[in-house]
Design a protein around this nucleic acid. Structure first.
Lengths: 196, 196
DNA sequence: TGCATAAGTGAATGAATATTCATTTATATT
DNA sequence: AATATAAATGAATATTCATTCACTTATGCA
C-alpha cells in the first residue's frame, strides 16, 4: 500500500489558508489551490469530500489548535485575573506565531459554514471554560453575568486589537501596530470591568 | 431621456445584501443577483463598474448609514457616559431596523475589499468622534488611552453581542437572543472600565 | 520478489462565472 | 409630435469553476 505524503497534506492546508486570507473565500478555488500546492485537483478530493468539507475541516483544525493553545496551563481553579491573563497571553502567542490562522478564522467566523465548527468548540472546551468562570464567580472574583456578556467583555476587545493589527489599520491610524503595553492596558481595563 | 428607475436600484441593493448575508460572498454572483432583482445582468453594469465596485459601493453606503445613525444626536461636548450610551442606543436601533445590513458589514469587514470603506469612514466621521473622545479626556471623564484601545473597549463588546444574536448562537447557548438588559449591563461594564 | 491496495494523477465535462454588445425602450426637452 | 439620449435588455463569449474517471505509481506485507 502506498503511504500518504504528510508534507503534501500540510502544504495543502497551508496554501489554502494563505489563499483564503489574501484573496478572500470567493477568490479561492480548488484548481488554484491544486496548482499552488503542486498537486492534482483530483488529489484534493482524496483528502476532502468537496470544497465545503475542505473549508470546514480547515476551520475545525485551526480552531482546535487555537483553543488548545489558549487553554495551555489553564486549570479551572485558577484565580480569575490569572486565568484571564493566561488566556490572553496564550492567544497573543498563537497570533504572533500563526497570524494567518487567526485571520483565516476571523474571516470565516461569520459564515454559515462555521456553525458546525462552533459546536465542536463548545463540545471540546466549553467544560473547562465553564468551570473556570463558575469558580471565579463562586469565589467573588467575577461578577455573575450571562455567559455572552462575560465573553463579549472578556475577549472581544482583544480580538478587535488583533484585527486592527492584522489589517494595519484602525479608525484613527492608517498604519497601526499592536504593542505589548497596549494589550496589557486593555486587559487591565477588562479585568477592572469584570471584577465585582 | 429615459429616467432611472429608483425602485429598481433599491431592489438591487436590497437583494445583493440579502444574498451575500445568506449565502456568503462566494455564493454571490452577478447573474444570480440579476435574476433575484428581475433585471438583466447588463443593467448591473450601468449602475456598477464591475462586481468589486458593486460590493464596495454597497459597503460604503451601508457603513455611512450606520455611522450617520450612530452619531444621531451626538455633539462632541456631551458627557462621556451620555455620548457612549447614545452611540450604543443608536447602533442597536440600526441593528434591529436593518439586521441584514449589519451582518453584511460584519461579513466583509475583514476582507481586502473593505480597506477603502474604512478610509471613507475615517474621513467622514473621524472628526466628530475624535473631538468627543478628546473632550471627555480633558474633562477627566475618560482615561487617556490609545485610540485603538479605547475603540476596542468601547465598541467591540457590543458588536460581539450583536454577532451572538445574529447567529443565534454563543459559546454557551445554542439559541441565544440579546436582551435590552444585557446590552445595558454590558454598557455599564464598559463605562466602568473606561472611567478614570 | 511480487502482489494488493491506497495514493496520486491529467485530462475531460458540464455548469456557472463576469462581462460585453448590438439592440430596444422610455421619457425630458424641443 | 419628433427627437435625442440615457436606461434597460437578452443573448453571446470566453473563462473559470467543482468534480469525476480511467489510469499510473509507490509501498507495506506475504
Amino acid at each position: 500500500m502506498r503511504t500518504r505524503d504528510v508534507n503534501k497534506e500540510n502544504l495543502i492546508q497551508e496554501k489554502a489558508i494563505e489563499m483564503i486570507v489574501k484573496q478572500g473565500l470567493d477568490g479561492f478555488s480548488m484548481q488554484k489551490l491544486a496548482k499552488a500546492a503542486n498537486v492534482s485537483p483530483a488529489t484534493l478530493y482524496i483528502y476532502y469530500k468537496d470544497r465545503d468539507d475542505l473549508i470546514t475541516q480547515l476551520a475545525t483544525s485551526v480552531s482546535n489548535r487555537l483553543m488548545e493553545t489558549s487553554l495551555k496551563g489553564m486549570h479551572p481553579k485558577m484565580s480569575f485575573a490569572d486565568g484571564l491573563e493566561l488566556q490572553w497571553k496564550n492567544r497573543m502567542e498563537f497570533f504572533f506565531k500563526y497570524p494567518l490562522d487567526v485571520e483565516f478564522i476571523e474571516q470565516i467566523r461569520y459564515m454559515p459554514t462555521y456553525d458546525s465548527v462552533r459546536d465542536n468548540i463548545r463540545k471540546n472546551f466549553g467544560d473547562v471554560l465553564g468551570k473556570f468562570v463558575h469558580n471565579a464567580i463562586n469565589r467573588g472574583e467575577l461578577q455573575p453575568l450571562p455567559f455572552e456578556v462575560y465573553w463579549s467583555m472578556a475577549f472581544a476587545p482583544l480580538y478587535q486589537l488583533i484585527k486592527f493589527h492584522a489589517q494595519g489599520n484602525s479608525p484613527a491610524n492608517a498604519s497601526f501596530r499592536i504593542t505589548d503595553d497596549m494589550v496589557k492596558q486593555t486587559l487591565e481595563l477588562v479585568i477592572k470591568a469584570l471584577k465585582p
